[in-house]
Every structure is written in C-alpha cells, then in structure tokens.
Amino acid sequence: MRVAVLGATRGMGREVARRLAERGDTLVVLARDAGAGEAMATDLRIRGARDTAFVPCDLADPTTFAPALDAATAFLHQLDAVVVTAGLFGTQEQLEDDLDLCARVLDVDFTKTILFCEHARTRLLERGGGTLVVFSSVAGDRGRKTTGLYGATKAGLSHYLESLDHKFRSAGLVTITVKPGFIRTGMTAGLKEAPFAADADDVAPLVVKAMDRAAPVVYTPRIWQLVMLVIRYLPRFVMRRVGF
C-alpha cells in the first residue's frame, strides 16, 4: 500500500506507520517539524518500508493541506490510504482554565481535522476510492465529566466520519474511525492511568487489521468496544453519579 500519515512523528501515528513499514509499504510522513519528520522517515525506511519521504503539513494551517497531499501523491504515484493521528490534547482542567488553549483544541481537533479529511477524501475519490483512517477517541462516545471539551471535538469528528463512510463507501472510499482508550504515549504522559491502559505498540496492529478488513469502527484496545456499548446505554442519572 501507499500511505500518507499525518501525525507519524509521535504516539499512535508512529506505531501505526511502523507496522505499515514492517510489511513493506511506501509511506509519506506528513508533519509540521522538518527535523522530526525526516527522522521518522528514516526510522520507517530502516524498519522495512519500501520507500519513505517527509512532506511538510501543519494540521493547524489549512493552507498547507492541498500542497502537502499533492506532494505526497506525487511521491507515492498513487495514494491508497491516508491516516490521521495528529491532534491537540488538554485535560478537562487545563482546557477549562485556559480558554485560549481550549479554542485551539476545539479548532484543530474538530474544524481543521475535518477540513483535512475533506481534502484527503476528495483526492482518494478522484482515483476511485481508497482508505481514510482517522483517530477519534472513546472520549467522543458519551458526554463525561472528565473529558467534556476534548470529547466534544471527538464526538463531532466521529459523527462526520460515520457520515463519510455511509456516503462514499459505494464509491470505493472506506472511512475508518479509530477510537482509542488510554494509550501510554507522549500525549498521556503524566496523567493518571485509566482502566485498560495499553501501549501504542500493542494496539497499532488492530488499526492495520481494520485497514485490511475495511472495518468502519475500531476500538483500541478491543475491550473498549464492550465498555462503551454499556456506557452508551447508561441512563443519564447513572452517568451523572459516576466519576467516569
């Protein structure tokens, strides 16, 4: 496969890109920072990628989206899949205390991410389809005390991604919504671990498997699928009482 990954320099994106590299895929690292982007392209090549390149792209700056995807397509010759793991994060307390940060998180994780997906899905559809993999979160499945603001962007994102999948699946575009629980990455470093915490290394294969099977929704680790099934149907008065 020929894949462009936005967010491959860190966290989950790093591990998903590595799994793709290890099976010989050709990869473009879309990233803001040239040093980190080039280093990651090298890492992926050493691990077995057929070929890799770094292309600058900043999720916070939509003017970079079209040129980045054009350059990625030129390098890959054909764009088979786009993976989006980039995003901002803040705890509920941090976002409540700092509304500037809050505005940036809402903007980047919702508006800018959806704009990027619109650019990506247009290009994938132009060539007759492909796979769009986007990292949402279990935090978007239900309004919760502890993840309200960040979760709201993910709820909106999940909603958008589901509609994409319904609308364009028949045209050949597979949209995959990934909903990670607590993964031990740089994003969550220093936070108290939630239940079922997992390493990126352990859950990345689930994402690659979902790409192979064209599964529309994937929870990582898998246990979250069951957990959220229950949580989604909990009555509001119960939700209000639990600290979850």
Binding site: L88, F89, G90, T91, Q94, G186, M187, T188, A189, G190, L191, K192
Partner: peptide
Amino acid sequence: MNSKTSDPTVPLAPHE
C-alpha cells in the same frame, strides 16, 4: 501536544 509532565514539586499520590 504534551500536557505538562514533569513537576517534582507535585506531591506523589499513594498509587504512584
């Protein structure tokens, strides 16, 4: 983006 991770002045919780 990273949340601030290192602050030795924050006391340890019992589970840490």
